[in-house]
């Protein structure tokens, strides 16, 4: 038996909106300690990893480990039934054929229930090695989204260069070439800070199209954390306060 209740249902709505354009069918791993999900996009260029801790739920019960195969596209349709200030409860029995989702608004006395049919997915589970990232950039999530959108109109590929003084996003295309360079900015307004932790410079190229999809998650956190290591995938990380973390891994473009 699995049951989890989230008072701030909006967070779950945002999480589903943040991943629905990247992954299609996912296995949701339920355990007594929390909920996790790992899935690749259809072209195997990006990997989404979500971890939610049981502590972040108003009520959480999972007697055993369970795997719930879910079509994210269908889950997104069901989540549309939720108002932004609904409380959301997820329920599934052992060997369940569906996931019960309940939206409650205690103020308006409105309750919505939906049994989402589960699917069987034989997805390969990848092991993500613990990596010591030699460059970690913490940047305002709105600002990073804006930079990616603007650069995408100039090129499909962005080269990210880090060193102790700045992080640089450069593009080159038939329009011309240029770069956005962000230095360390410890402005008193916390959410405007750009923090660089660089022990080793990194220079890699990535497809901006994926960064734009990842940035859908910027509604979850005012900061985006970029973790880079030469020859390793980029990690774009969004911390979900009091609940967990949503990570996107993007394979770099490499010389053939």
């Amino acid at each position: 038996m699995f049951e989890a209740k989230l008072t701030e249902g909006l967070i779950l709505k945002k999480i589903v909106e943040s991943i629905k354009d990247i992954v299609t069918d996912v296995n949701i791993d339920i355990s007594p300690s929390g909920i996790s999900l790992q899935a690749m996009d259809s072209s195997h260029v990006a990997l989404v990893s979500l971890n939610l801790s049981m502590d972040g739920f108003e009520h959480y019960r999972a007697d055993t480990n369970m795997v719930l195969g879910v079509s994210i596209a269908n889950l997104a349709k069901v989540m549309k039934l939720a108002d932004n200030n609904d409380q959301i409860t997820l329920q599934a029995d052992q060997e369940a054929t569906h996931l019960k989702i309940i939206f409650e608004n205690p103020k308006t006395e409105r309750t919505t229930e939906f049994n989402l049919n589960l699917i069987t997915i034989d997805s390969e589970h990848l092991a993500i090695p613990e990596t010591e990232y030699s460059s970690v950039v913490t940047i305002n999530s709105g600002e990073f989204s804006k930079i990616c959108k603007e650069l995408f109109s100039l090129s499909e590929t962005v080269q990210i260069t880090t060193n102790t003084d700045y992080v640089q996003f450069s593009v080159e295309g038939e329009v011309g070439s240029g770069q956005v360079r962000l230095g360390h900015n410890d402005s008193e307004k916390k959410e405007d800070q750009t923090i660089l932790e660089v022990s080793e410079s990194v220079q890699q190229q990535f497809a901006i199209r994926y960064l734009n999809m990842f940035n859908k998650a910027s509604t979850l956190s005012s900061f985006t954390r970029l973790c880079l290591h030469q020859e390793q995938p980029l990690v774009v990380e969004f911390k979900i306060d009091n609940l967990g973390v949503l990570k996107y891994f993007l394979a770099p473009k490499i010389s053939d």
């Binding site: 990006a46 990997l47 092991a127 590929t157 891994f249 394979a251 053939d256």
Partner: peptide
């Protein structure tokens, strides 16, 4: 020209 790598190249099947 740089080619898009496959993410599975970096992560291994347990």
């Amino acid at each position: 020209l740089k080619l898009q790598a496959d993410i599975r190249k970096f992560f291994f099947k347990p």
